[in-house]
Amino acid sequence: MKQIGMTCIIDDDPIFVFGAKRIMEIANFSKSVMIFNNGKEALDNLKSIITHDEDVPDIILLDINMPIMDGWQFLDEFIKIKTKKAIKVFVVSSSIDPADLKKAKKYEIIEDYILKPISVEKIKNIYKNLSKL
């Protein structure tokens, strides 16, 4: 099973980040992981990474409710950045508000909406779906 090169987690919750990293390790999901604590931090850093053509992530696991810049605001800016390779975005949120689910469907860049809690099975499913693409 081929690994994903670089996964980017954008989430303000350290417990989630800790758990997600560990679960990805267990699932042998990704070679490396980069973490940002909110949309703004992620956007600034990703812009710079993409311009300098450094370690551009393959997928982004994006939380919705975050301080400073939330997931939607991040996406609205992020889709304006031109990238050489397609970056897949997965929304990973604990929100079961139908409004959020509905909104997610409007973004072409969003591959899927994954409801927290995440588990080894769910992470493995992401990989399976990516392989199909």
Partner: peptide
């Protein structure tokens, strides 16, 4: 949302 995210973390950590 908020309560659910705490629940999610607990569940994840237990796993």
């Amino acid at each position: 949302h908020d309560l659910r995210s705490h629940y999610s973390n607990l569940d994840m950590l237990l796993n």
